[in-house]
Design a binder for these strands. Structure first.
Lengths: 171, 171
DNA sequence: CGTACGCTAACGTAGCGTCACGGTCG
DNA sequence: CCGACCGTGACGCTACGTTAGCGTAC
């Protein structure tokens, strides 16, 4: 029931290559993350199990401690699933591609090869455009659905007015 | 590979209470329906198995023959699943509720009880408004996603212009 | 008489839900 | 030391995919 702050006595996060180990960031336990993301604890563990989430830091007792970056990542995954309907395998591929791209871009940020950079940028752009297509597709479908629902509601309202008139007439 | 027309020799649909038996409607085999709806044959059979689709008419040989009404129904189910993310159990409930509502409304179309009609209409309206809420929710989520994707594309384009300037400069 | 498509039956897989049983925290 | 939370199995369920074996259409 508590937001666990880093470096408090008896609750020290463990882990060799822990980037967050000395930042003052507040780390959250799994239940809080589940509440804030709208997923279940089971789902969070499962995503970690299949390699969608990288293992978070742990307390000495073995409790998972999630950073804000971890949570942000979870939210991205949730959007891809619930809004776009991607499978977890597809999401895993997307996330890994994006990670590798970030690494490569970092490596090339120090070098100077504009033409190679350009090529890499166009790859990234193509990927984003692909996502765009999916989003637009879903959007038009949903908008169609909304207009048809609106029409139904309008018809209902007309019917209701008619029925009320009948009732007034009777009375 | 053929659209099977009704009442052609050697391919007569069978079935006792077949409403389509003497209409000139063209009936389709399962593969064509799968192509036109974007579902698989397995999925169509499965939906029938769990009671989501009422069993279509069959040929003497046992082949399924789908009417346009059947196909329309399949498309509605697909929208509910892929656009709104309903589970099949939820869709089954929705479809059955809608069917019963249609029957009751038909029965009352001949009778005259405006107040009862009004009550029924409000039930239907509440259901539609519930669907509306879900649709709006998804729509805003997708629109947010689209704008963030747009921003990324804009940044990419700016970067590209910059890189091209560098390339021109070098040359 | 082949081959392209259909049928059912049955097992496999993904994405979790749900115990069971034991450790951890305050 | 107690109750609430955490951990890892392990089995169950849904919504199909896939394969196998066999009939049907032309």
């Amino acid at each position: 029931v508590k937001a666990v702050a880093n470096m408090t006595a008896g609750n020290t996060p463990t882990g060799a290559a822990d980037a967050n180990a000395q930042s003052g960031e507040t780390l959250l336990q799994i239940d809080q993350v589940a509440i804030r993301t709208g997923l279940t604890k089971r789902t969070l563990r499962y995503y970690e199990e299949i390699g969608l989430l990288e293992p978070p830091t742990r307390t000495e007792g073995g409790y998972r401690l999630y950073s804000e970056a971890d949570i942000h990542r979870v939210e991205g995954i949730k959007r891809l699933r619930t809004l776009l309907g991607f499978s977890l395998a597809e999401i895993r591929d997307l996330v890994r591609a994006e990670e590798e791209r970030a690494r490569v871009r970092d490596a090339w940020r120090h070098e100077d090869d504009p033409s190679a950079r350009l090529q890499h940028l166009e790859e990234a752009e193509a990927l984003v455009r692909g996502q765009m297509r999916l989003v637009e597709e879903k959007l038009t479908g949903l908008e169609d659905l909304r207009t048809s629902l609106c029409e139904r509601l309008d018809r209902y309202e007309a019917l209701r007015a008619q029925l009320r008139a009948q009732l007034d007439e009777e009375h």
